[in-house]
Design a protein around this nucleic acid. Structure first.
Lengths: 260, 260
DNA sequence: CGGCTTGTTCCGTTATATGGAACTTAATTT
DNA sequence: AAATTAAGTTCCATATAACGGAACAAGCCG
């Protein structure tokens, strides 16, 4: 979603660009494909790729196409386990899950996307792992909208004015005005909804989480299939979701020293 | 487990060293701590860290300690979803899970470690996500030993001679001879066991997976708590595990072109 | 307050990444 | 099969970006 198309800051940035290119593509990429995506001369790109492969960040398939390397998995595993915010939030996610019996998500805002940091599943969900680390557009997800609502006006405006809306379902918000309206509402009630705006048949209720000075902004949500849980039922969980969000903020601000 | 202690190849390698240092530490690291782990002059390290932060690979906590960044999660999420081997193996993991009702693991060998690529849980396991991408020593895990057994003799010898054995449980193999013995057995039977060698109370049965020319080497396993599933029961699953491994190999070799 | 640790910035030097071009290998066409 | 084109890899002079010493700023502790 968040195309990191060519902001090459230093050698590292360029290496990352290559990784992002591979990551963003639905199809497997071969050398020449990459060459078009990354504006680099052949020799240069070739060396960069070699380096990435040597570090295990990239690997080659038999057909000479590239895929992301295992080193990323290992690092991410540690990143996940060591993440302070996630660690602090975890017990609250668990509790909210106990209370509602439905899937609970934790996500942080990064640009226009929400990155899912953790999730507690209702049952064995099929392809669940992939969810964590996943980036989804903020404007059509519960945690995303909640997080947006937690931003100070100035940042919010600057940010959402750059959104290019894409209709994911028939309920997706597709205008800036609609989004602004929702955000105003979320700020009043402290609750955000995703009314099947991202995936048809799936809705959720979310609440914003943010540090005192908004240096991070996140959200927590409870998600359920619409056929099983009505929107009214969802709404009744509002106090629980708000409470969980509040508790996480509490824990977080006490864990962090007051200010820098 | 696999300490990447200072093999700085190029700029990228050094950056990775810093990440690995942060990843490897159980405690949060502050600037000076890192300075001791990474043999770099202050100015240099500082800039490297700045770059890493700018790319989202690292982030700072309020107390000036560092943690791995969200970018890693996002990349890893794609790495996981796009991984060819994993994709091919997935349905077979699923099937094995259906057949046994227990947790199924897929792992690949990387040096002396096994990296877990996928897993199908028996129930809602508590801290499951962390497992994927996790690196565990090969010599004391089912998939690890299976994978080792799939290596050609020469590579195997070179590799295992460098193992430093650590006793994880009372059943952990702690000598090269013992490991060699097991590997010989695994090669005969096509089946590896982990008899509570990694975690007490947990045992598993595994089978090796490898490409024709051994350019990758992996394993699949079914894991269960000893109190619920006897070692005899586990052993009865041998044909299923072997079959799954075989099927994965089959699918993989047909998916890949014959040779380079 | 003064000394000491920790973190950050600057800038001349050096090492490293760059990228054009030449070269090799594989695929495609005639 | 030979010829043609495309894809992938290696080389090397050059420019750029990383280096690292040292000076500077900010906390912390006695």
């Amino acid at each position: 979603m968040n195309d990191n198309g060519g902001n090459a800051t230093g050698t590292l940035g360029k290496a990352l660009d290559v990784l992002q290119a591979v990551a963003s593509s639905p199809h497997p990429l071969r050398f020449t494909d990459l060459l078009q995506l990354v504006p680099q001369p052949r020799g240069t790109l070739h060396r960069q790729i070699s380096n990435l492969i040597q570090e295990g960040l990239l690997s080659v398939r038999r057909d000479h196409s590239y895929e992301l390397g295992l080193t990323l998995l290992t690092l991410a595993s540690r990143a996940w386990a060591g993440n302070q915010f996630r660690t602090v939030a975890e017990p609250h996610l668990r509790q909210l899950h106990e209370q509602t019996g439905e899937t609970v998500h934790l996500g942080v805002l990064k640009g226009l996307d929400v990155i899912y940091l953790d999730k507690v599943e209702s049952r064995q969900a099929v392809r669940m792992h992939s969810q964590i680390g996943n980036a989804s557009p903020a404007y059509c997800t519960g945690v995303g909208k909640a997080a947006l609502a937690a931003l100070p006006d100035m940042e919010l405006d600057k940010l959402i004015s750059t959104i290019s809306f894409r209709r994911h379902t028939e309920h997706t918000l597709t205008s800036l005005e609609a989004l602004r309206g929702e955000i105003a509402e979320i700020r009043q009630t402290g609750i955000a909804f995703d009314r099947q705006e991202h995936e048809p048949g799936i809705h959720c209720i979310a609440a914003p989480i943010h540090s005192r000075d908004r240096d991070f902004v996140a959200g927590i949500s409870t998600t359920a299939p619409a056929y099983r849980i009505s929107i009214e039922q969802l709404t009744e969980w509002a106090p629980l979701v708000r409470a969980a969000a509040g508790a996480i903020m509490e824990d977080m601000t006490s864990r962090l020293g007051p200010k820098s």
